Simulated assay, not measured.
Amino acid sequence: MKKLGMLPKKPKKATYKPKPYEQMTYPGERVQVDVKVVPRKCIADPEMKLYQYTAIDEYTRIRFLYGYEEQSTYSSADFVKGW
């Protein structure tokens, strides 16, 4: 059926055009925040579990790191207050 052209033709997808990167104009305009689990082999105490909170200012590229023993709303709020 395909060779005979009996199947309906699929409409062409529009080509993907990425948006241009918006350059920041002042410090603090956009900050990226991320949380990662610290691998146990990087911690001296094998029973401890740590979470690394990271914030990066996109204008100045200044990085702020802090570790917490739990990932919770309290830890997140405390991290943002410290930034």
Rank of each mutant, 00 (worst) to 15 (best):
K36C: 07
K19F: 14
Q23R: 09
L4P: 00
G5H: 01
D45H: 01
R30N: 14
P20H: 01
P18Q: 03
I43D: 00
T15A: 14
Y21W: 08
G28P: 08
S75L: 04
I62A: 09
G28M: 05
Y21S: 02
A14G: 08
R61P: 06
E70G: 02
L4C: 02
K19G: 10
Y74D: 12
T25P: 06
Q52R: 07
K36A: 09
R40E: 10
R61K: 14
I56D: 07
K2P: 09
D57H: 10
K12V: 09
K3W: 07
Q71T: 04
Y68A: 00
E70Y: 11
R30T: 15
S76L: 08
M1D: 05
K13I: 03
M6G: 04
T25M: 08
Y26E: 13
V35G: 06
T54R: 04
A44D: 08
F64V: 13
D57N: 03
T60A: 01
G82N: 06
K81C: 07
A14H: 09
Y53W: 11
M24Q: 15
Q71H: 04
M48Q: 15
W83C: 14
D57A: 04
P46F: 04
G5S: 07
T15R: 15
T54K: 07
L4R: 03
E47F: 11
R63F: 06
M6P: 06
P8H: 10
I62S: 09
V31E: 03
E70T: 13
E22D: 09
L4M: 07
K49R: 07
K49T: 13
E29Q: 14
F64P: 06
R63G: 07
K9G: 05
K41S: 14
S72K: 01
D34R: 03
A77W: 00
K13E: 08
A55W: 02
G28T: 05
K41D: 15
R61I: 01
P20E: 12
K10H: 05
Q32T: 15
K2F: 07
P8S: 11
P18H: 12
D45V: 10
K3N: 05
K41G: 06
T60H: 03
E58Y: 15
G82F: 07
Y26Q: 10
P46T: 02
P11Q: 12
Y68L: 01
L65A: 09
G5M: 08
Q71S: 08
D78Q: 08
S76K: 00
E29R: 13
Q23L: 14
F64S: 05
D34I: 02
A77E: 14
E29L: 03
D45Y: 04
F79K: 02
F79W: 00
Y74A: 03
D78I: 00
Y26F: 12
R61F: 10
E69C: 01
